[in-house]
């Protein structure tokens, strides 16, 4: 498997689902982030040991059946979302 592996920074986070959206408090920055249902689904399926985008896509397909993205490239969307989570400090990108 190629590409980066993404590890959830769970020890640095406090995740609080509300009725409609999920809020995440990042202890290191003191900032609060809002996860859309799509982001929350990806984040909650990241194993503690980390996973590659292709591995996450397979996990989601196993759980939910076919995973579709609006522009057709689900793997690219997942990679992009994981990068966004990494930029916020919610996941750590390992080589």
């Amino acid at each position: 498997m190629s590409g980066a592996r993404y590890i959830p920074a769970r020890a640095d986070l406090r995740v609080e689902p509300l009725e409609d959206l999920t809020l995440v408090f990042h202890r290191l920055s003191g900032e609060t982030h809002i996860l859309s249902p799509e982001m929350e689904m990806m984040f909650s399926h990241l194993p503690d040991a980390g996973i590659h985008p292709a591995g996450l896509l397979r996990t989601l397909e196993t759980e939910y059946g076919a995973v579709e993205a609006e522009d057709g490239d689900a793997l690219a969307v997942i990679s992009q979302r994981l990068e966004e989570l990494a930029a916020l400090g919610l996941v750590i990108r390992a080589a």
């Binding site: 509300l18 009725e19 409609d20 959206l21 809020l23 609060t32 809002i34």
Partner: peptide
């Protein structure tokens, strides 16, 4: 308001 909307307004 939804809970997240209320959170955002208060925040």
């Amino acid at each position: 308001m939804s809970q997240s909307e209320a959170y955002m307004r208060l925040s």
